[in-house]
Each structure stands twice: as structure tokens, then as C-alpha cells.
Simulated scan of single mutants.
Amino acid sequence: MNEGKDGSVAQRKHLSCLPCFDALLFCYTPVHQMKQYYRLGVLDNCSEKWNDLFDCLNLKTKQSSVAQEILETREKAKPHIWYFRTPEEAAANWKEMFGQLDEA
């Protein structure tokens, strides 16, 4: 394994396009299409899945160091799953969402 400048072991991610291909195939299944139609009122054209697959295949054509840098940049740009509120923001949000329950 390669060690970085700081001594940590660099874990290189293996880029596989198989999950993108599986997601694209699932997108065209009746189960997915009916779920989309029920939820949104329209069928899914699966363009996002096609874009993900083409993007993955495009990354496969690049040098591994360049592809790794692109993937790391994307990972850092993703928003954090949790949004932390200050107590004042939380109280205002609670009041907005559930204030009617206090009046009962």
C-alpha cells in the first residue's frame, strides 16, 4: 500500500461502472416507472442514469491519478447529510412546522 506524505495509508478507490449500469437497467423496470408515476405523475426518462453511466465511462478513459483527483473533488463538494441548526433556528422551525399543536 502507498503511504502519503503524512504517513497515512492512501486508499485508492476502484472505479466501477457496474452500479451505474444496474441503476440504468432498474430505471426502465415497470416497478420503478410505476413508482415514479405514482409519486410524481410522470414516467422517468432515466436521463440522470444515462448521464451517470456516461460520466463513469468517461472517467475510465482518464489517467487513474486524474480520475482519482476528480472523484475526491466531487466527494468534498457533496453537502453533509446533516444540517445543524442553532437553538434559535430550531425553535423557529419547530414553531413554523408544529405551532398549531401548541394552540390545541
Rank of each mutant, 00 (worst) to 15 (best):
47 S>Q: 15
9 V>Y: 03
90 A>N: 05
57 L>W: 03
69 E>F: 03
23 A>N: 06
4 G>I: 04
7 G>M: 10
55 D>E: 09
78 K>E: 12
76 K>G: 01
59 L>K: 12
55 D>I: 00
13 K>E: 11
17 C>F: 02
62 K>L: 15
51 N>M: 09
66 V>F: 07
61 T>A: 13
36 Q>I: 01
60 K>I: 08
45 N>L: 07
93 N>T: 13
56 C>V: 04
26 F>C: 11
26 F>Q: 15
92 A>W: 00
58 N>W: 04
62 K>M: 15
5 K>L: 14
20 C>I: 00
50 W>I: 13
96 E>M: 12
6 D>A: 15
72 E>S: 10
18 L>Y: 04
84 F>Q: 14
26 F>V: 05
44 D>V: 06
11 Q>T: 07
23 A>W: 00
75 E>R: 11
46 C>K: 06
5 K>F: 10
55 D>N: 12
23 A>I: 02
55 D>L: 04
97 M>F: 03
18 L>K: 10
67 A>K: 08
3 E>P: 00
91 A>I: 04
61 T>P: 00
31 V>R: 14
22 D>K: 15
99 G>S: 04
28 Y>A: 13
41 G>H: 03
90 A>E: 07
38 Y>H: 08
103 E>A: 11
52 D>M: 07
34 M>P: 00
35 K>D: 03
52 D>A: 14
63 Q>G: 12
19 P>E: 05
57 L>Y: 02
17 C>W: 01
103 E>H: 02
76 K>R: 10
30 P>A: 09
72 E>F: 02
34 M>S: 09
8 S>M: 13
9 V>S: 07
47 S>W: 03
17 C>P: 01
9 V>I: 13
72 E>W: 01
101 L>Q: 10
7 G>N: 09
